[in-house]
């Protein structure tokens, strides 16, 4: 399947439901062949944006352009977009093969051709031999694959996925993340993926757009988003983040003191300063709680002025953790390079 993928331009798209603003003048450029994830809590507007692209939500203003063509007012059936829905939306009254053939039949592809292409698509998602099954007889993972096959079979130039893995259990979900990414790399279709799972977003995306309250908070590569969040919201949404006043940190190189907030990821902390080469910062506190999580220990420290600091110590270098007692004084160290100062005005 050779697919010419297309870029997408979202220009100042706005959508309000009554007084509730779901999309607040969103603008976004997506390159041809890119895998972009819209990440955010429920109600952040990510699904509304996806449904606007699909044509099911009509924006109040702004425009949606796919491959140079304005599709803002185009009806959904004319958009040629492959969509994988949250609960798959497979047609229960049709067989697996009929589901996958459906978009081809609508495009007046000959019966034999449609069958051949549907079988190829099923093979691509590793469902050879499942064509005659009933949808009701499939497991969650298999339904997911049928939904994928149905969305790619007509060689759409853009793919939209709305939390496609949310109904699967953890192991299968992680497996499917790689499969979907592999499918994307094989086909090169421009893909917009919606999820509220930050780990999923980090694993799969070329770029992540973090959304909240109908606005894009930050759009960047996974590593940039994780390590250099622009706002407190992004920092906290992306994982165990400690947001501390910078002056709380004791720097050993006595560099320029700046005021403001700093973010340090829980896993950036070390208990043994010798593990860090170069300049480092230190935080003192008393241990309030500790928990063993298998791959790491989670320790909570309370600093003298009441701030909470969370440390994640990998199991491989956590020799002393089991013996710690609540109330014990501890000092945590982090390499100065891992301290990310949040830009001004990022307090929320």
């Amino acid at each position: 399947m050779a697919i010419t993928s297309l870029p997408i331009t979202i220009d100042r798209v706005r959508k309000a439901f009554g007084t509730y603003v779901a999309l607040n003048d969103i603008s976004l450029e997506i390159a041809a062949g890119e895998f972009l994830t819209l990440l955010g809590p429920s109600g952040s507007g990510k699904t509304t944006l996806l449904m606007a692209l699909a044509g099911f939500v009509r924006p109040d203003s702004g425009s949606l352009v796919i491959g140079g063509r304005d599709v803002t007012r185009l009806s959904p059936d004319k958009r040629d977009i492959g969509i994988v829905f949250q609960n798959y939306a497979l047609f229960p009254h049709m067989s697996v093969l009929a589901n996958v053939e459906y978009p081809l039949i609508l495009r007046k592809v000959s019966k034999a051709d449609a069958r051949a292409r549907a079988l190829t698509a099923l093979a691509r998602v590793k469902l050879e031999g499942y064509g005659d099954r009933n949808i009701a007889a499939l497991s969650g993972g298999q339904r997911q694959r049928v939904a994928l096959a149905r969305a790619i079979v007509f060689e759409p130039r853009v793919m939209l996925m709305d939390e496609p893995l949310s109904a699967l259990d953890k192991n299968l979900r992680e497996h499917m993340q790689f499969e979907i990414r592999r499918l994307h790399d094989d086909l090169g279709i421009t893909t917009i993926y919606v999820t509220h799972d930050q780990r999923e977003a980090l694993t799969m995306s070329d770029r992540i757009a973090v959304m909240d309250a109908g606005e894009i908070q930050q759009i960047a590569t996974p590593s940039e988003i994780y390590h250099r969040p622009k706002t407190r919201f992004v920092a906290e949404f992306m994982g165990e983040a400690n947001i501390l006043p910078i002056d709380l940190l004791h720097r050993d190189d006595a560099g320029a003191t700046i005021s403001g907030l700093a973010m340090i990821r829980a896993e950036s902390f070390h208990l043994d300063p010798a593990e860090i080469a170069g300049s480092k910062v230190a935080v003192k506190g008393t241990l309030s709680t500790k928990a063993f999580r298998g791959e790491n220990w989670l320790l909570n420290l309370k600093t003298a002025n009441g701030d909470e600091v969370m440390l994640s110590v990998p199991a491989t270098r956590s020799a002393g953790c089991a013996g710690f007692r609540p109330g014990q004084e501890l000092t945590a160290y982090a390499a100065a390079a891992t301290v990310h100062s949040l830009p001004e005005g990022a307090a929320r």
Partner: peptide, 11 residues
């Protein structure tokens, strides 16, 4: 696309 046109669509 003007806001009025959208409103007309909804109506």
């Amino acid at each position: 696309m003007s806001a009025a046109a959208y409103l007309q669509d909804a109506r």
